[in-house]
Amino acid sequence: MSSSDEHMNLLYRQIIMDHYQHPRNKGLTGAPDYYTVHLKNPSCGDDLSVQVKLEGDRVADVRHIGDGCSICCSSSSMMSELLKGETVEQALATIASFKHMASAEPYDADLLKEAVSLHGVAQLPARVKCATLAWIAAETAIRRDEEQARQPAATSTPSQPTGQDETRTS
């Protein structure tokens, strides 16, 4: 390994540990205009909730909270920081790119910024799901929130309040 590779790896480790120990956008809100998705890895116990607020075609805010390993938690923090402020189209492209990286497929590193630090999970198939959980949750939240926004108010189910919670296992 060249010294520049070593330098980059040290930097990536610092990024991961920084997000693990000092997560950004952590904590859920009770505000009604957020869409919440709760995902779990039942096999290992990772448990994550992601909230997304859309304003027009923009991801106005992303919140998250969870219990999991360093990869799951740091990935969730990086995801929240990256997607916040992107358009829905950009955000979905970023999510796709992250999933490609984690599966060792070609990906657009420019879209992922700091999240490229997690590229090493591709070498550990057993840990890929730790890294992708937050991104899958965000994608689900964005798509569902969009669907909901597209539905005319008259056809929405009255018993379902906005800011609904969706619990699924991945």
Binding site: C44, D46, G68, C69, S70, I71, C72, L124, R127, C130
Partner: peptide, 11 residues
Amino acid sequence: VHPHDAASIYD
């Protein structure tokens, strides 16, 4: 250290 992180070291 989360148990999954530790398990990767054991592996």
